[in-house]
């Protein structure tokens, strides 16, 4: 009995009754003091509930979420691209190719036509004694090699930093 009354009261308060039901319920409210008492009590609860303020979230919550979201982006980007490893690998391959090419270009052998001998000497790591006579030419390939690798590493570092900056959160 009480459940039925309560259900009616909720439907009335929520505005879920049609006009015929509402009229009937209003008549019932006037004639049934027990129902009227229950209705007033529910109306009070309804009003009190509607006035409860919202709880305040901790002040650092937004900062925490932003840092979590940003961190996730960084790691995803690095994991997906392997940009550092890829660039170093490309750099290594490029330096080997350039070194071989320089070996052909600057070796004394190029004067009389190059042969596999000049490449072989390069791979041994030392210039042929004969090419030493050519002074700067003989050493230029080693200078180039020693410069290319660190330059590529610096370039790679710069590109990664620039990439990371574009993902950082702007406060504005």
């Amino acid at each position: 009995m009480m459940d039925k009354s309560l259900e009616k009261i909720f439907r009335y308060i929520d505005g879920e009754m049609n006009s015929a039901e509402m009229e009937l319920f209003q008549v019932e409210l006037k004639s049934n003091s027990e129902l009227n008492k229950m209705y007033l009590s529910q109306l009070n609860i309804h009003r009190a509930l509607s006035q409860v303020p919202t709880s305040t979230a901790p002040a650092h919550l937004a900062d925490n979420v932003m840092s979590m979201v940003t961190k996730k982006k960084f790691s995803t980007e690095k994991f997906n691209s392997f940009s550092g490893l890829k660039n170093i690998a490309i750099g290594a391959v490029a330096s080997v190719v350039i070194t071989i090419a320089l070996g052909f270009i600057f070796s004394n052998e190029t004067v009389t036509g190059y042969s596999m001998g000049s490449v072989g000497r390069y791979l041994d790591g030392m210039p042929d004694v004969a090419t030493m006579t050519n002074g700067l030419y003989a050493y230029s390939k080693y200078i180039c090699i020693s410069l290319i690798v660190p330059l590529l590493i610096i370039l790679d570092g710069y590109l990664q930093k620039r990439n990371a900056k574009s993902y950082s959160i702007s406060e504005n």
Partner: peptide
């Protein structure tokens, strides 16, 4: 987030 954080937290 700042607009809705109190509601979600509640």
């Amino acid at each position: 987030m700042e607009k809705y954080q109190n509601y979600m937290y509640s």
